[in-house]
Design a protein around this nucleic acid. Structure first.
Length: 588
RNA sequence: GCCGCUGUGGCUCAGGGGUAGAGCAAUUCACUCGUAAUGAAUAGGUCGUGAGUUCAAUUCUCACCAGCGGCUCCA
């Protein structure tokens, strides 16, 4: 059995989910079945069950699954005409399956799989018999809405995973434990990058000096790079009157996600302000401050922009989902002729950033379209959406980019190309996004005069280059397990004097390195050098500089690198050159 | 917002209806030390917050707050 084969793996896990459902039905016959697919890593099944399954109950289910596996029950496929299929599910009381059958197209073949006395509506495919599943573990129970809609009932979901042999399961569990050690939310707090407090609140992290330093390094790098690429920096206000958001459509389509100050009911008498959830309308105001010619375009605005979004309580997570964050935001205002180049340049800039920080290999691309069935969520007409989407599709295909298409994931004003990344738990999030907008220029009355002297509405590209800094930092911490590459490390080297009598020289050495712009500290504590090394290692320091009698006398320094260990002594000048080269070349 | 788990000194954790312990960290002292933890002493907590039950609550119940895993939503 080749478990590297994705199809086989998914069949394997899908069959395991049937075994789990079978076990649940044996133990809790009243339970009704939802759906139970295989996923990236394992499988789940949703059950309509009175209470959440406790860890003990999961153990029992696991035991029952082992019995079913030992019974080596064959999985038999059979098909039924629609009415008979409905009758069968009716007889078993499977109301959710009935709903699924009703939603199948008229001409769809309706198939079932049977193992022993358990029958499930399913298109398959499956393994031949339950005995082929060897090592099983149910990993967690969680609530999940029926058909993914919060308007529906919440079912009880059980996640699990299975493998063809015991050792693979042990390895998997081990691997998960290792991954968890990289979790930015744990490591980032331990290493002193950020913290949160009850008094400030959820989703509002405090960036401690170390975290703040990394963000500053990234921000300066991005601002400088964007300036080289023709962007102009703006600094726009963090809040605005509701009037602004009414024009942009945020008031109608995004208000739930905004912090509003004042009472919208009394708007006639009182001022109502809101913190900005996006930068676009602000930079549009900058564009509007004078009349524009086609000769002025493209105009590329960028801003290291702090945004505020009122996320609901259960959605916050470490630095990945927060209520206040800072993004490398920018808007390119251009003519139709510029669109292709500006869009592909924006994407190229984002990919350059990913390469520089070392995440280039870890991302996937998602082309996010609107949902024409849910037009209330969006502004603009179907014709405008078709135009923007087909323009983006044309550019993407021209760039030979490997992407997936996601319906209903667009912004309310236009389609997006999202650069997706997975965190240490395998959960996918958007890191970077580049969007095409054919709508907001018109709403804001943004125009330029074309060659013929006619007023035209420009096209707008909404884009971020490195994404939101907090989220990017979170993924960097996970990628490098806290040991950030030298160029972005908050503390690049630490001088470790052997004893108290070397402290003065240690300070002099550190000062000399600082003169070259290196971020260096001295461990002045009255501790043995072994302990100082151990703690520097745990603090993820890239370089430890040990200074004792020998080095002081010879004018050298003993260098220990995190990666290579003891590197022996070297002249201070050599050390400086080495550190500067590694830092300036942004070696990852 | 929804389903569930968790909350004990700065950190990791033990305990448990009769007002609390360990290791690390911190402070002080001694040692002046050569590549992943020197030793000793001292100090530090109204057990997340607020109600309720009880003679008595950190322990039981409820609510709230915060952290975690999912769902929904999203950069």
């Amino acid at each position: 059995m080749d478990f590297n084969d994705a199809d086989l793996r998914s069949r394997y896990w899908h069959t395991t989910s049937h075994i789990m459902a079978h076990a649940v039905k044996r133990l809790y016959p009243e339970t009704r079945l939802g759906i139970g697919p295989s996923i990236d890593q394992g499988f789940y099944y949703d059950f309509d069950h009175e209470t959440t399954f406790s860890p003990d109950e999961l153990k029992n289910i696991e035991q029952e699954m082992k019995k079913i596996i030992r019974e080596k029950l064959p999985l038999e496929r059979f098909e039924l005409p629609r009415q008979e299929a409905l009758d069968l599910m009716e007889e078993k009381g499977e109301i959710y399956k009935i709903e699924l059958i009703h939603d199948l197209p008229e001409d769809e073949v309706i198939s079932f799989y049977r193992q022993g006395d358990f029958v499930d509506l399913c298109s398959g495919p499956h393994l031949e018999h339950t005995g082929q599943v060897k090592a099983v573990k149910l990993t967690q129970a969680a609530g999940a809405y029926w058909r993914g809609s919060e308007k529906n009932k919440m079912l009880q979901r059980i996640y699990g995973i299975s493998f063809p042999d015991r050792q693979m399961l042990i390895d998997y569990i081990q691997q998960q434990a290792e991954a968890r050690k990289r979790d930015h939310n744990k490591l980032g707090r331990e290493l002193g990058f950020f913290t949160t407090t009850d008094y400030i609140g959820q989703g509002l992290p405090i960036m401690l000096p170390k975290g703040a330093k990394v963000l500053q390094i990234l921000e300066r790098f991005v601002e400088d790079e964007e300036e080289k690429r023709g962007y102009q920096l703006t600094k726009t206000p963090f809040l605005a009157k509701s009037d602004l958001y009414k024009i942009s459509g945020h008031w109608q389509h995004y208000q739930d996600g905004m912090f509003v100050m004042g009472d919208p009911e009394k708007e006639a008498e009182e001022e109502v302000l809101a913190l900005r959830p996006m930068t676009c309308p602000f930079q549009f105001q900058a564009y509007l401050q004078k009349t524009r010619s086609y000769r002025d375009l493209p105009i590329r605005y960028s801003e290291t922009s702090t945004l505020f979004r009122n996320e609901s309580s259960g959605e916050m997570h470490g630095l990945i989902r927060v209520r206040q964050f800072t993004i490398s935001e920018g808007h390119i205002i251009c003519t139709p002729e510029h669109l292709d180049k500006e869009f592909s340049d924006s994407l190229e800039l984002a990919r350059f950033m990913l390469k520089t920080i070392g995440l280039y290999e870890d991302v996937s691309y998602r082309f996010s379209l609107w949902d024409p069935k849910d037009t209330d969520k969006y502004i603009g007409s179907a014709a405008q959406w078709d135009a923007a989407q087909s323009a983006m599709r044309r550019i993407l295909d021209h760039m030979d980019l490997d992407y997936t298409v996601a319906d209903g994931e667009a912004a309310f004003y236009g389609p997006k190309l999202d650069i997706q990344i997975r965190n240490v738990f395998g959960k996918e999030d958007t890191l970077i996004t580049v969007q095409i907008d054919f709508q907001l220029a018109e709403r804001f009355g943004m125009t330029y005069t074309d060659k013929e002297g006619h007023k035209q509405h420009p096209f707008i590209i909404h884009r971020t280059s490195i994404g939101c800094y907090e989220r990017t930092l979170a993924l960097l911490i996970e990628k490098y397990a806290g040991a950030l590459p030298l160029w972005m490390a908050p503390e690049q080297a630490r001088v470790l004097p052997i004893s108290e009598k070397h402290i003065t020289q240690a300070e002099q050495l550190a000062e000399k390195l600082r003169q070259h712009g290196l971020r260096v500290t001295v461990d002045q504590r009255d501790e043995k050098v072994g302990k100082k090394i151990r703690e520097a290692q745990m603090d993820k320091l890239q370089y430890m500089l040990i200074l004792g009698d020998q080095e002081v006398e010879a004018g050298t320094v003993s260098v220990r690198s995190r990666k290579e260990g003891d590197m022996g002594v070297m002249p201070v000048g050599d050390l400086i050159n080495r550190l500067l080269r590694e830092s300036n070349e942004r070696v990852n």
